[in-house]
Amino acid sequence: MKLRLRIWRQAGAEDKGKMVPYVIDGISEDASFLEMLDVLNEQLIAEGEDPVAFDHDCREGICGACSLMIDGQAHGPQGATTTCQLHMRQYSDGDTIDIEPWRAGAFPVVKDLVVDRSSFDRIIQAGGYISAPTGTAPDAHAVPVPKPDADAAFSAAACIGCGACVAACPNGSGMLFMAAKVAHLGLMPQGQPERHTRVLGMVAAHDEAGFGGCTNTGECSAACPKEIGLDVIGRLNADFRKAATRAA
């Protein structure tokens, strides 16, 4: 198929950046979206132009590296699908596709479609863990975990840290990402001792990193390729209230 692409090009963090049109032909419907960009890049290099920079690694929807706004939608039109798992059979010959980086205050653009998401790591540093130094663990069966809790914890832990939630949020909030971790750890018995310090620390780091506040628009969950539900935000808020009252 033949496509018209309009891609955000920005040489570096200081550059202003703009949308640049490209035409690409002969794309197979079995190709993935990133493979389509590979073909474009091969073409650009052949013409002596700088290829389009974009983040990617696993190309199977699990590492969370890929991160494109496609026609205004984080990870494109298909539900529960990362950009790397989006395939060109979702498009038709002659389509025009706009491709932009994540846009959020806490995710500055590095180059073209690549953004800096290290603010997510800083949120985890501020408490997104259970303190269990190597070698100190009791037998794995010492503490049974009710299956529904374990399953719910898993669903929250399935977050791949891609940042689609932030990109989709009109406020650029990192609430869903943060709440998914708070819920995962808070649902496990091992996570109880640090439950309150965790949520306070993470929320402070979140705000400091320049993420916006959450106004419950729900765009985050709709854009999440792992379908993390809004219920985790409810859990975070409840934990936060309790922790803040205690600390006060």
Binding site: Y129, I130, A132, T134, G135, T136, A137, P138, D139, A140, V143, P144, V145, P146, K147, A150, D151, A153, F154, A157, H184, L185, M188, Q190, G191
Partner: peptide, 16 residues
């Protein structure tokens, strides 16, 4: 043991 202590959500049975 180590991973469970860290909160890794391994699959569990109904008995926990």
């Amino acid at each position: 043991d180590q991973c469970v202590a860290q909160g890794v959500p391994f699959a569990r049975e109904y008995g926990g």
